[in-house]
């Protein structure tokens, strides 16, 4: 049995070893060296030098700030929007499946394509779709802006693009969570005479807690992985207003051949992901202990 089991598991384990575990360990090793592709300097260990460098690099600090701001805005907005859509769709009405399809559709669009389409939506001048839309809803008060070249508006433009593409994913997960709530809980609440609002507050939300924590976790991690939209829509500009940790890592390792610096950035990225994940596990466990 053991032999057969090993044969069954071996290909996948070998793949994970070579293409996840090995580079993962390598990231921690490289981050402490001076490695540069094509550099004539001998390879040596430089201790925390790369970390000292990235944390005194204004572009990287700005990148971390942008990732954090992105997370702080997109996580609550996208989660609440997804929750709202899921609640709207979680009832027995004709035609709701069609709306679910429509809201989910952007999820199957590659981010590269989404980014290109939204570049046109954010086109400068009164002829740009977003400008024209804002001018209409503000009854002409909106002055046309060049969103993607505006230091204040460029990041929000990327946020909006990302929410549009991603909210359907979260919606479907929350919808599955809603449908897993036992109907008896609502019946019991109705017998107790609980209002619609109280049923939402005392039945739906507590039952949905783990799902919501998971959605928040995934969205937060996505915020720190942000890359495609930045690469296509703004290249990190204007003046680093939209750069991200991943964009800086690729710039370092790829455009400037500074593999060690890029590795140091991804180590920081991993530590952030780890922190968020541990936090989520804690929150879920707490709830299980109470229950």
């Amino acid at each position: 049995m053991t032999r057969a089991a090993w044969l069954f598991a071996a290909p996948a384990l070998l793949g994970l070893l070579l293409f996840v575990a090995l580079p993962f360990v390598l990231a921690f090793v490289l981050a402490f060296t001076n490695l540069r592709l094509g550099s004539p300097l001998p390879l040596e260990f430089v201790g925390l030098e790369q970390f000292r460098r990235i944390f005194s690099d204004p572009a990287f600090l700005r990148a971390l700030l942008n990732n954090a701001v992105f997370a702080l805005v997109v996580v609550p907005v996208q989660t609440l929007l997804a929750l709202g859509l899921a609640l709207l769709l979680n009832r027995r009405l004709k035609g709701l499946a069609l709306f679910r399809t429509l809201f989910f559709m952007p999820v199957v669009f590659p981010l590269s394509l989404v980014s290109v389409v939204w570049v046109l939506i954010f086109a400068p001048g009164a002829n740009g779709m977003m400008n024209a839309f804002l001018e209409t809803v503000t009854l002409g008060a909106w002055q046309p802006r060049d969103f993607l070249h505006d230091p204040v508006l460029a990041l929000p433009a990327i946020m909006l693009t990302s929410v549009w593409q991603g909210v359907g994913f979260q919606m479907v997960i929350i919808l599955a969570g809603l449908q897993a709530i036992p109907g008896e809980l609502y019946e019991a609440a109705a017998i107790d005479g609980a209002s619609r609002w109280r049923r939402f507050w005392h039945v739906t939300l507590p039952q949905l807690r783990n799902t919501l924590i998971f959605v928040v976790l995934v969205t937060t991690i996505l915020a720190f992985r942000l890359f495609d939209q930045v690469q296509i829509m703004t290249q990190g500009g204007p003046r680093n207003a939209t750069t991200t940790a991943m964009y800086e890592a690729v710039q370092a390792a790829f455009a400037r051949q500074q593999v060690a610096k890029g590795a140091a950035i991804t180590v920081v990225l991993f530590l952030i992901v780890l922190l968020v994940t541990v936090l989520q596990r804690r929150l879920v466990r707490q709830e299980r202990e109470i229950a």
């Binding site: 490289l30 490695l35 592709l37 992985r225 390792a253 790829f254 950035i265 991804t266 180590v267 991993f270």
Partner: peptide, 11 residues
Amino acid sequence: PLEAIAVPLFY
């Protein structure tokens, strides 16, 4: 995530 190992994997 892939992003966290992209640079060493690239190397």
